[in-house]
Amino acid sequence: MNVAVQAAVSGLTLGALYGLFALTVVVLWRTAGLVNFAQGSMATLSAFIAYFLLIPLGLPLWVMFLLSLLIGAVLGAVIYTVVLLPRSTGDHYNELFRTMGLSLFIVAFVQRSWGSGEPYPFPSLIGSGSVDVLGFRVQWLQLLTLVIALVLTFAFAAFLRTPRIGLTMRAVASDREVSTILGVRVRFVIMIAWLIVGAIGAAIALLFTPLYSLSSDLMEPFLLKGFAAALLGGLSSFRGAIIAGLIVGVMDAEVAVFLGPEWRDVASFILLLGVLLIRPSGIFGQANTVRV
């Protein structure tokens, strides 16, 4: 029992990061009707840029963290402007393949620049050590990661729920043409989504890196688990994204403990498949939101 609870506690930390990843999927889905397959590689690239640009400056870690969010946001804006904006037709399949190509490009760029799978030690936002929570040992790093992830989730979700942003994003996602006719600044709204998605991606990478280490395949686990969480949460629900992320994280940790680490991806894949087959609208989604 203790082992199960201990696993759940560490699963919650990773789960909060999966939830954040799922949030980025939801943001782009709700705004641009787009699934961004480059989300993971964008986050990895942000972390590498932060590593080589900011660490030599010797800044306090929290300043570095905030600057990294800025770097991620700028990267998101650049990618939208360069990759998705030219000849933008709102054709979802066209845009989907652009992000797939972009992902391959970024991975190749990172591997070429900084080596394939080469680990780089990344400083932790907090020192080692642990604390007892209800009789269970929790590392400070895990606790901090969980707290920051939840704070970021609620902060961004609150921003996205503000009436102008929230409603105009939904309008743009539903019908870009009519939104344009109505005077909604469609490109501006989608740009905001990419800024947010870029910033959150950088945050995920920076919170995840100290738990493992910075490398070109840093975000690989997120591709399967983050999308599984987004689908389980219903693709259109911010609350669903974070709750589903936590569920996936705990499931991941329990499977690793009781069945063995090699079953983790299998379990996530079964979950992903199960959601698509049994309840494509997820736990919190509306029945008509899936359209890819």
């Binding site: 409603l167 939904r170 309008a171 539903s174 019908d175 009519v178 006719i181």
Partner: peptide, 10 residues
Amino acid sequence: ALIDALTVRE
């Protein structure tokens, strides 16, 4: 020029 997915009020 209305967005079908939104409500009347929205």
